[in-house]
Simulated assay, not measured.
Amino acid sequence: NDALLHLNLGAIREEQGDIPAAESCYRRAMELEPGNAKALNNMGKVLQRQGRGAEGEKYLRWALQLAPDYPLALNNLGVICSGQGRHDEALACFLRALELEPQSVNALYNAAGACNCLNQQDEAISHLRRLLELRPDHAPARHMLAALSGETTETAPRAYVEETFDAYAERFDRHLTEHLHYAVPTVLQEMVSAALGNGQRVGMAIDLGCGTGLAGEAFRPLAVQLHGIDISAGMLAKAAAKGIYDRLEREDLGQWLDNCGQKYDLFVAADVFVYVGRLDGVFASLGRCAAAGAFFAFSVEHSGEGGDYLLRPSGRYAHSPDYIERLAGAHGWSVVDRRHQGTRREQGKWIEGDLFLLRR
């Protein structure tokens, strides 16, 4: 019957990635001590992580009524506002949190993100530079500083991708399909089905960057064996719960390519190369893992005219179709199908992309 005990246990469960269990702990702490601002803050945070932002906001505002100068609650409220597209409100929360705690790395990073969404790139850069003065090793901040400064790096750092998707895992499926109108896995599956012919399947398929299994759900009927890899533990937990993969491994793409000891008939990479700029190594390595006649189905964001690839202010890479086709030819792949279409909606606009199906 000790609220502090349940708060501490909830923090442990949250660290372990068991968000529903953390919620239960925080709820019990609130029952024991209804005016505990820390319990209210933590409850708001875990509800947001589960895609229940409107519910979480009520707890955070309650916490701030009790403790108006609570920087963690301000930061968490800002995250909810940002996730709902209320970027002005979010920025106000982050800036107030920084007034109270000027060296808060999380508030600085989140303030930069809100400024970026409001097209205040100079302010975003200023926040990121301040953050990097405090934490020079903060890989996500360094990646976003490059993106906002017009610098194109070769790949996003592992820490950036891992942190992004661990925090996103609980609400990933609903957000992509309902809010971003994401349908890339379905279209890629249609392309592969058409190439295989009526009712045909492949023997071994691998879902590269499988996430929560959205692509796996689409491709499960086409493969006798379906494997998946991802670097986010949170995403893999969601994928495992769906029971659609025969094997799941926590590895980044580079590690897997270096260690791959099997031959696959189908490689799928849906919305994966937006976190990898230079793809020369990927194409070279995939050839070693490809069975004769293997297929490679993937999507990229469309960069238009110019160089081979670029890093956008969103922190995502876009690629030139000419670059993709040149790599394919150089590494023994032929283009079976290519479709140019919107891949997702952001801020009311479609992000243009290219979906490719290659064959070895």
Rank of each mutant, 00 (worst) to 15 (best):
R174K: 09
G287E: 15
D230I: 00
L118F: 14
I125Y: 02
Q225A: 02
S104M: 08
Q189S: 13
L357C: 07
M235T: 01
L357R: 02
C260A: 15
F267V: 06
E346Q: 12
F273S: 06
D322G: 09
Q16P: 01
A237F: 00
R49S: 11
C93M: 07
G348K: 05
A239C: 06
G83I: 07
D271P: 08
C93A: 13
A37M: 03
L128K: 06
A297Q: 12
N116M: 12
H179Q: 15
G85F: 08
N116K: 15
A215E: 03
N119M: 13
A67P: 00
Y168V: 09
L148P: 05
D246A: 00
D246V: 01
E123R: 12
V300E: 09
A183H: 08
E178N: 10
E123S: 12
R27N: 03
A139E: 15
A63L: 06
S126R: 14
R13H: 13
E33T: 04
G261H: 01
A39I: 03
D308R: 11
H179C: 08
I206T: 04
A290C: 13
D246E: 12
R312K: 14
M191F: 03
E99F: 05
A241S: 15
G10T: 05
E162H: 05
L100V: 10
F283C: 11
E15D: 09
G150W: 13
R174E: 15
G306K: 10
E190K: 08
R96M: 10
T155P: 00
L4H: 11
P20A: 06
D308C: 15
V276N: 02
A215T: 03
A205N: 02
G315E: 09
D137Y: 08
S24P: 01
R96L: 10
W256Q: 01
Y317L: 11
L72E: 15
S126P: 00
F219M: 01
L74H: 03
E305I: 10
C115F: 05
E154D: 15
E251T: 09
Q103D: 15
A37P: 04
I351Q: 02
V46A: 04
L327W: 05
D230T: 03
Y275K: 03
F356G: 08
A294E: 11
H319R: 08
N36H: 06
Y245G: 00
G261L: 05
A63V: 05
A290M: 14
L4I: 05
C93N: 11
G199I: 01
Q103I: 01
E217C: 06
Q189G: 09
R49H: 07
G332W: 05
R158W: 11
L91G: 10
D173K: 05
H143Y: 13
G85M: 07
P68A: 11
L118C: 10
G277K: 07
L132F: 10
G150H: 12
N119C: 13
K38M: 13
R130C: 09
N198W: 00
V282A: 08
A73M: 10
D354G: 03
D354I: 02
R345M: 12
